[in-house]
Design a protein around this nucleic acid. Sequence first.
DNA 1: GCAGCGTGGTTGATTCTTCAACTAGGCGTC
DNA 2: GACGCCTAGTTGAAGAATCAACCACGCTGC
Lengths: 162, 162
Amino acid sequence: MWDMTEPRWLNADERRAWLALVSINTLLPAALDTKLHTAGKLSLFDYTVLAMLSEAEGRFLPMSELAARSSASLSRLSHVVTKLQKRGWVERRPHPHDARVTTAHLTEEGMATIVGLAPGHVEDVRDLFLDALTEQDVLDLARIGEKVVGRLDADHWILRES
Amino acid sequence: MWDMTEPRWLNADERRAWLALVSINTLLPAALDTKLHTAGKLSLFDYTVLAMLSEAEGRFLPMSELAARSSASLSRLSHVVTKLQKRGWVERRPHPHDARVTTAHLTEEGMATIVGLAPGHVEDVRDLFLDALTEQDVLDLARIGEKVVGRLDADHWILRES
DNA sequence: GCAGCGTGGTTGATTCTTCAACTAGGCGTC
DNA sequence: GACGCCTAGTTGAAGAATCAACCACGCTGC
């Protein structure tokens, strides 16, 4: 026997929050994607992958770790790394101590690409998103956002103790 | 001459808010997509389209209006409506007074589908998202979310006076 | 030392999305 | 009433995401 009671439909505020989130979800990446695509022929996800590598110690990461930091499946990442590799921005190398592991390394050109793109991208993020918010909003959003991420993935890397 | 000054990089809280939003953005739709796909072989976007039609007066909407309410391009919507049409959930009809307009109508089967899916979907939304939040969080998120949507698209339908 | 299981990663097919090009009808102006 | 422009929508091709199948390696227990 399953629960036959009437489902708890969303109340007005829950609906507002939900609809806003879904809308942001489609509008924001789309806007940043087109910005990045005109600036450098890459997607927001491509950019994120390069950014995560550029911030990593030694500018390389195992594929799994890179997947975690870009919230992507290993499969998706593997396809994208292949593409970035063809453009000369990333290299794959075998891990010295564990033959199962592949590490993705940011090349010099890859670094140059992201260094060139970063200022414009940060401006876009401010322009499309952060500039709409007060300091308190940013704080609230960080708090709420991390709660939601924690519910979706309790071990998510952004929640790791720093 | 363009602005040569150092870009304003994100501070710690801005970065937290931004990273959380990007993560939610990839994790939440993915989770709901797989839930909906196992429940009824449709994506979150398919569901949204059916839901918007089911809530519309007369259960039909012009393609452009439906596109606006699902935050999609007309092109994307057109492809999806073709797919939903093949499954018998939606019908296309010419608009009686403006021959340019096509209206998408929810069929009886389409209505039955969404009525069957809705309770589970609402449960999932609560489970994956709303249950992580307090009432105050929901209120804050609605406020902040609508600000962001307004910045991305000042005329967005969710901001229309009701 | 090898059988079995879990982990890390890749691949190819299918599905989805986007983009650019195009059809076609409405509206304004002269 | 015909020219140009705008709005509404469709289409096909190209690029991207997902899914399931798969390979290879490491670890554990025997």
